[in-house]
Design a protein around this nucleic acid. Structure first.
Length: 676
DNA sequence: GCAAGGTC
């Protein structure tokens, strides 16, 4: 549809930077900004028009009552509801002022469900829903934007309803379950303490706990293999075994004897091949967070915060993006020229500028609203802090690398054999560092190998039987947990790092020696949630939200109906928790203690004192986790006996000594050692 | 105070 004639239009953008791009596309002029919020004036459809920015959500859901269950809420300005949201007030003030002379409203926020809600609420509270339009664009380029404004639509009711529904569902689940947790905590400990649960944070906590439990009850497998070294011209090289490890000690000794007796290996084939390593695509936020952690040791949330600062200083593009592609319209030559004014990049920039065409590498990930992260080419007009500079440097180098030539390596692979046993020896060197010259955070592995001919025989210097242990799954770090969230598609680019920090703030997670640890509180909260609100610890809650929201968007289900379903689901569970708490208070019942794992009634774990869930073969009571560790310790022994021939007591001593064995498994082994 | 989602 085209716009109806109106005297004055008010165009709402999602944020100041987007407003500026819309203004540029529509040739509007910047005005005001005295309040700290810029706006633009121009003409649209022959009539006067304003463009005013929001700053993301300006409204938020607010509870109508304390306590729980609570299903009464209303939309209110964010500065009234949230601490630290005072800055949103000036945005509302400006829009409200401009709205007085406006007679029609255009929602020009990002074309997704949140953008639909952001614009809609502003129009609902400060404008007029009945004289409102929506523009739809897939990028913020002048072409897309001016086309979008030539073909405006009525308000996108489906998207708005789906968006409102998402907010309401997250709110009623999150607020109610959080309040229930706090009430349980108070009943048990007598203390007030802030606890929380939510569709994204709780499955993440659960995942961290699951991994921790796997590790703490882990008992390694033992196996045996061979280390074979050859000697060429006085230099020793370790061979790679191209056969499955023999596993048992007995077989390994037998093969070792055979190899020693043979004394030499024959070169079966020689392969020399060039390998070319293409440059990586420019950063999206998850890639930037991963690399900033690896190279600079920054946490994902620190990276986002610093990147936001660089963005607000116009040094880099919008960082909350999932795209690994640069837009074709981007003037890369101009950006590289800009960067060449910074000394450290000058040499490499010159190389790039001498190329006839600048073609950046690009990845598979796309983002409808924003391109990959790139430097704007402006030089910093203030001194950057050390961290800012290092992150900026990482982004610039990654961007420049995208234009660079491939890195060239030369690899040599020898295939060797001794009888039926096959080995290989590989090495390589850099022919041309290519893009790694500028993105120097990559260490191309160079390894020296001797010069050998096919058919040549070389002497075996040594053969050793080595004992190996399998390793537990790795501890999560902030980065790998964030990647897990990404892999199961919960949270968004903009929120994942913050939600992780919430888990730390609540005291559910803490930074351990080389990764994330779940605290006692974290694991108790997780077990409470699993007992009373099982859905909230699973990623399936997000999946079911997505299905419902799709239906709301398509008009197949009403928002009210979806919300009602959630209320009907939650209400009885919340009442149940409330009743249990009452019972606990009035009758001194021990149930909540039990739920919290500090039971009074019943048998207790012989090792940690928690309520027992089972017992050993000799009838010793154990809690759930120690029972799991016990089963692992017992069941692993047959394999150890088969492969190494050790007796049970020696086995226990070995697993107690091994760094691979989990803490609880060690406790069980120590307990069992009493029989030795 | 509590969610998750935007962004200064």
């Amino acid at each position: 549809m085209s716009l109806m004639s109106a005297d004055v239009y008010l165009i709402i953008a999602e944020k100041p930077k987007a407003a500026a791009k819309i203004a540029y596309a529509l040739r509007f002029k910047k005005a005001g900004g005295k309040s700290g919020v810029p706006f633009w004036i121009g003409r649209l459809n022959g009539a006067k028009a304003y463009i005013a920015p929001a700053a993301g959500h300006l409204y938020s859901l607010k509870p109508r009552s304390p306590g729980y269950p609570v299903f009464e809420y209303e939309w209110a300005p964010r500065y009234e509801v949230e601490r630290g949201a005072a800055y949103t007030r000036k945005f509302l003030t400006l829009i409200s002022k401009l709205s007085k002379s406006a007679t029609a409203y255009i929602n020009a926020c990002d074309y997704d469900i949140e953008g639909s809600v952001i614009g809609y609420l502003i129009i609902r509270f400060l404008g007029d829903e009945k004289r409102a339009y929506r523009v739809k664009f897939s990028s913020l380029t002048p072409e897309d934007l001016s086309a979008a404004f030539k073909k405006v639509s009525p308000l996108d009711t489906g998207m708005i309803e789906a968006g409102l529904c998402r907010h309401e569902l997250d709110w009623i689940w999150g607020i109610n379950v959080s309040r229930a947790l706090m009430e349980i905590f108070k009943a048990v400990t007598g203390k007030r303490y802030v606890l929380s649960a939510g569709r994204v944070q709780s499955p993440t906590l659960m995942e961290a706990l699951k991994r921790q439990n796997e590790r703490s009850t882990f008992v390694p497998e033992i196996y045996f293999t061979l280390d074979v070294w050859v000697e060429v011209n006085g230099k020793k090289f370790k061979l790679t075994n191209e056969f499955a490890p023999p596993l048992t000690r007995e077989d390994s000794i037998r093969i070792a004897k055979y190899l020693r007796r043979a004394g030499e290996a024959q070169v079966v084939s020689v392969k020399e091949e060039p390998k070319s390593l293409r440059p990586p695509p420019p950063f999206n936020l998850p890639d930037l967070q991963t690399e900033a952690s690896r190279v600079l040791g920054l946490s994902p949330s620190q990276t986002l915060r610093i990147a936001e600062g660089l963005y607000l200083n116009s040094l880099i593009s919008y960082p909350r993006t999932n795209s690994q592609r640069l837009p074709p319209s981007l003037n890369n030559r101009k950006i590289v020229e800009g960067l060449s004014r910074i000394n450290v990049y000058q040499g490499y920039c010159r190389k790039i500028l001498s190329m006839a065409e600048l073609r950046p590498a690009s990845g598979k990930k796309v983002d409808p609203a924003h391109p990959a992260i790139y430097p704007t080419g402006y030089t910093p007009n203030r001194k950057l802090s050390r961290r800012e500079w290092r992150l900026y440097d990482l982004i610039v180098r990654r961007y420049l690398a995208a234009f660079g030539p491939a890195a060239k390596m030369s690899y040599t692979t020898y295939e060797l054999r001794v009888g039926d046993y096959r080995f290989s020896l590989k090495g390589g060197f850099i022919v041309n560092p290519g893009w790694t010259e500028v993105y120097r955070f990559i260490n191309l592995r160079q390894k020296e190998v001797p010069r050998l001919r096919e058919g040549e025989r070389i002497s075996i210097a040594s053969v050793k039987v080595v004992r190996k242990y399998s390793v537990p799954p790795p501890k999560y770090t902030k980065v790998t947990l964030l990647k897990w969230m990404e892999s199961v598609d919960i949270g968004t680019e903009a929120t994942r790092a913050d939600i992780l920090e919430v888990l730390f703030k609540r005291g559910y997670l803490k930074q351990g020696s080389n990764g994330v640890e779940v605290t006692e509180l974290g694991s108790e909260v997780a077990s409470l949630l699993g007992r009373f609100f099982n859905e909230i610890v699973s990623v399936n809650l997000t999946r079911s939200f997505e299905e419902k929201l799709e239906m709301v968007k398509a008009g197949k289900m009403a928002r009210k109906e979806v919300v009602k379903e959630a209320v009907e689901y939650l209400r009885p569970r919340l009442e149940e928790v409330k009743d249990l708490i009452k019972k606990y208070r009035s009758e001194e019942a021990t149930y909540l203690h039990e739920v919290l794992g500090r039971g009074i009634k019943g048998r207790k774990c012989a090792i940690c004192g928690r309520l027992a869930e089972g017992s050993t073969d000799d009838g010793v009571p154990l809690c759930g986790l120690h029972l799991r560790a016990y089963r692992n310790v017992i069941s692993r022994y047959s394999l150890w006996k088969e492969r190494s021939g050790v007796g049970f007591c020696k086995y226990l001593r070995s697993i107690i000594k091994s760094s691979k064995t989990g803490k609880l498994a060690k406790e069980i082994a120590s307990y069992l050692m009493r029989e030795c």
